[in-house]
Design a protein around this nucleic acid. Structure first.
Lengths: 224, 224
DNA sequence: TAGATTGTTAATCGATTAACAATC
DNA sequence: TAGATTGTTAATCGATTAACAATC
């Protein structure tokens, strides 16, 4: 066994490959080559092969990859052979939406419990999920051994809630709060800042639709 | 004039820097150094300076960056000096949530119109937003000159809706559908696949909580 | 001025891609 | 076998970081 460090982007792509395999399997296809998969996503076939090769030799030379087998392996690697109970913190607009969002639950991830500090929400059942007061977060998640949490609280509360999650033994956090949160080594944070994503699109839009009047002008122009 | 290509990640970080500046400004601070900003996010100070230097010389040697001025410039660069009307396609669970989500609207982005094919939803007003039938998408968005759209439809519909958006003159798409969508050159797609994000966390969790009992250790930094 | 910090170039690091022997 | 495609190494590309002269 080689303790090689796997690039983050490789792991993300594994999920993409898996989705591809599911589609192909639904089409009744038995095998697929790295080139075929790459073309589907505008990637390089060597990259597909390399990504997979980090985890083992799943292919058959001259043929490609057996879909059922590769799918099985990717599910195993990604930890999708088990169900995950996910905790939600923050049952506001976004949090409620995430409970309702079926795609979120689709693949073995189930929001089993939600936390909020608002007394108006505590005790309610939102989309089948019990809303518990945040002071009970640590004891509740420890008891349930929850490892994955979704953070959908306002930015100022994000760090303190993250601290609670870590204390409760959570090792992976999907953070929707527009805030930088700091966690100990070994805890993984995935930030999803919708506002940042929109700003990136805004940037792109001003550049793309440039024929408009407003032009970018750095304070000084320099040439080497 | 050199039309230098700006890394995608640089643009993303600009948004982060801007958030930092907003916080500092609220604290009444007048200037900040690249080192101070870098520390806040666990980045390298040279990276901060380099990111900014792509767009001009905004700093003062020996001092750092004047917050008000840099903030102004980042807003200009990111296209935040104007309001953007955003179109939403797909008023299901996620779509409705995005309408309700205030953080989404916060910074000059306003969902002005929504589209859906479901007759039960068409004609309704959700969160103050009119739901229009998707067949009217192209004409409506052309008339309104909408450039940014949020795609929150089921995966199988994603590509055909994306085609309509492009036809309507949209140049930036925030895609929540778990599907690979293909667009012409010049149109920017930001994919936000919540399921992929969760799988990445699942991967991390099986690896972290694997052989040994979990060990949590000193505090370190971040992730983007 | 003396100290600090930028803007920028050069070095390093990491990830993508090309190439090809191995082999189904 | 002949053709195809993997797994992997080497080459390339791009992004991060270190270093430092310029200069406030």
């Amino acid at each position: 066994m080689k303790p090689m460090k796997i690039p983050e982007k490789t792991v993300t792509r594994l999920s993409i490959y898996l989705r591809c395999l599911e589609e192909l399997e639904a089409d009744g296809v038995a095998s697929v080559s790295s080139r075929q998969m790459a073309e589907r996503f505008g990637l390089n076939s060597a990259q597909v092969r390399k990504d997979l090769a980090y985890f083992g030799q799943f292919g058959v030379r001259g043929l490609g990859y057996y879909i059922a087998e590769l799918k099985h392996n990717l599910e195993r690697i990604l930890g999708l052979k088990q169900d995950w109970e996910v905790a939600l913190v923050g049952v506001g607009n976004l949090g409620s939406a995430l409970i309702a969002y079926k795609g979120f639950q689709a693949r073995g991830f189930k929001i089993g419990v939600a936390f909020d500090t608002d007394p108006a929400r505590v005790g309610q059942v939102v989309g089948g999920v019990q809303v518990v007061e945040t002071v009970k977060l640590v004891s509740t998640l420890r008891k349930k051994k929850v490892k994955i949490a979704v953070l959908a609280v306002p930015a100022p509360a994000a760090q303190s809630v993250a601290d609670l999650l870590v204390e409760a033994g959570v090792t992976a956090i999907l953070n929707f709060a527009p805030a930088q949160i700091t966690v100990p080594e070994g805890v993984k944070v995935q930030n999803v800042d919708l506002s940042v994503l929109l700003k990136t699109l805004s940037y792109h839009t001003v550049r793309t639709n440039r024929p408009s009047p407003l032009r970018l002008e750095p304070r000084t122009i320099r040439e080497s």
